[in-house]
Structure formats: structure tokens, C-alpha cells
Simulated scan of single mutants.
Amino acid sequence: MNNNLNKKAIVILSGGMDSTLSSYIAKTDGYELIAVHFNYGQRTQNKELKAFRDICKELNVVNKYEIDIPFFTQIGANALTDLNIDVPTNGLEDGVPITYVPFRNGIFLSIATAVAEKEGATAMYIGVVQEDSSGYPDCTDSFIGSISKAINEGTKEDTKIEIITPLVHLSKSQIVQKAIELSVPLELTWSCYKEEHEACGVCDSCRLRLNGFTQANSIDPIKYKEF
């Protein structure tokens, strides 16, 4: 861990449980954190931004970026940024769900790369979860490996960035257990796709989160409408 002292890492921090745990792991790994958050027209944008700011305060992150990406609402085609498409509440879908935002993580990582190159960061942490990702194609180990190669080919020769995915092979219950172990303030995080005041409890993200807490024999500290 000492070899990372004084080195910088970008943490892509949505304010959700996974990205928050990933950020805490980055801090535990000894990096100086630079937090990057994206407002992309998602239904819970205001709540996620508040979560980001609250978590940055807990982590004592001084250097942070709040980046607006308005075009996701323009292209639509997903339930998170297109208000004409309902967020599913009947359980996880087969295949790629309608909550998948086209190439979102690829775009996030590309923008974060520009920030990393500017800041001289050598690592980027992202909380993707392959086994529990609802079928999103941009949450896989294979995708991360491919985009990692691309960003290092497309940046300056002296820019060397490692994409670190500490949660990629964990289940939601393991994520909950790890978050508790690291004293992550889970009460500040937000996962719901639909609501900004009390979590709906029935969207895919809420179901995965609640199931993780149940399997970890723990109680989720955020408020739910249905529970």
C-alpha cells in the first residue's frame, strides 16, 4: 500500500453503494482521490448529486468534478433518461434491460481519462459489478480490459492509467459486507432508479440492493416506500 502514497486516482462516484465502496477501497489503497460525478439527465439526478457531495465530504475529497452530459436525454432509448419509458418494477428482465443507458460507462471512462491525464492520475476506480449488473454490457471484465487498452493507446506516451474494478466479481451481499467492514456511510448512498425522497423498493436497482442486504443479514439504512 505504501507504494501508492502520493499517487492520484480518479474515482467515478455516482453516489450509489457500489461506486462509494469502490472509492473507499481506493482510499484504503493509499491513493489521493479525485472524485468525478456525472449529471446525465437521470431521473434521480438531484439525489445522486447530493449523495456524491455528502460522500466526498466524508472522504475528505477536495478535488472533485461535477460534469454535465446532457445528450443522454436527447438520445433517450432508456428508462433512466427518457421519462416516456417506465422504469420496470416487475423484477429483473432477460437480456439487456431498458434501464441500460447506451455505452454510459464507456463515455464516463473516456471523460474520466481526460481528467486523469490532466491531473496526472495513474489509476481510475469504477464500481462495475459483472455478476450482479442486471445484464449491462459495459459492466464486464472483458469490456474494461478492452477500453483500458484503448485509453492507454489514445493518451500521451507518458500517461499510464490502470482501470481498477475492485467489485467486478463480487455479489451484492459481498459488497454490503465489504462496505460494513470499511465503515462506508451506506445511509448517504442512493441506488433507486425512480425516486429521490424514499427509495421505491421495486426497481431493479432497489431489488438488487435489498437482496444484498438480506443475504448479508444486515438492514439497509436508507428509507423505502414499500418497506
Rank of each mutant, 00 (worst) to 15 (best):
T214Y: 02
E48D: 11
I147E: 02
A121V: 09
K27A: 09
P221K: 10
N2R: 04
Q130K: 15
F213C: 07
K149D: 09
K156V: 15
K194G: 03
G41A: 14
I126T: 04
Y65L: 12
D138E: 13
I219W: 03
I12D: 00
S146F: 09
A150H: 01
P166T: 11
Q215H: 02
S22T: 13
K156W: 14
I147K: 02
S191A: 05
T122M: 06
V62N: 01
I219D: 09
L186R: 03
Q42D: 08
S134F: 05
S173T: 01
E131H: 07
T99M: 10
V87Q: 04
K47Y: 00
K118V: 15
R104S: 10
E195A: 12
K8N: 05
F213N: 03
M124A: 11
E196A: 05
D29C: 15
G41L: 14
L182T: 07
P102A: 06
K225A: 09
P137F: 02
N3S: 14
M1Q: 15
F71E: 11
L170G: 03
A26Q: 07
N2I: 13
S191V: 10
Q174N: 05
G127H: 01
V115A: 04
I55N: 08
N46A: 14
L210D: 03
I163T: 08
Q215K: 03
E196G: 02
P88Q: 01
